[in-house]
Amino acid sequence: MPPHILLADDEVQIRQLLEFKLQGKGFEVTVVDDGAECLDHLEGPDELPDAVLLDVMMPQVDGFRALETIRDTLSEELPVIMLTTRSREPDAIRGLENGANEYIEKPFSPDEVIARVERHLQ
């Protein structure tokens, strides 16, 4: 079975690009466009995905709060890779402190994102 990735980002260009790229690499991809939907999906009946790509600035529940909920209630091991346009230091620190596995700044290289996802799946 192909690895399953949950992708949460409110920017349509990024969603479409990463979905396309990830599918091209043989991943199964579920796409949501805000943090609340992301948590709904994770808390739903389906099995947890193999990794989560999480945007920081999203409506309803932002990436940090989604991450905190994931770590507090769902899984400590689930690989979470944060994506953000912010580049101010405190954000990176907050993401890593709260248990993000990676913190990638936009603009980014899709190949690098995929490489990092693959690294955490091994």
Binding site: E11, Q13, I14, L17, K106, P107, F108, S109, P110, D111, E112
Partner: peptide, 15 residues
Amino acid sequence: TQTDQYLRLLTGSDR
């Protein structure tokens, strides 16, 4: 338009 959008989002070989 789409090229302009992606140029602002991407780095690396795609860019």
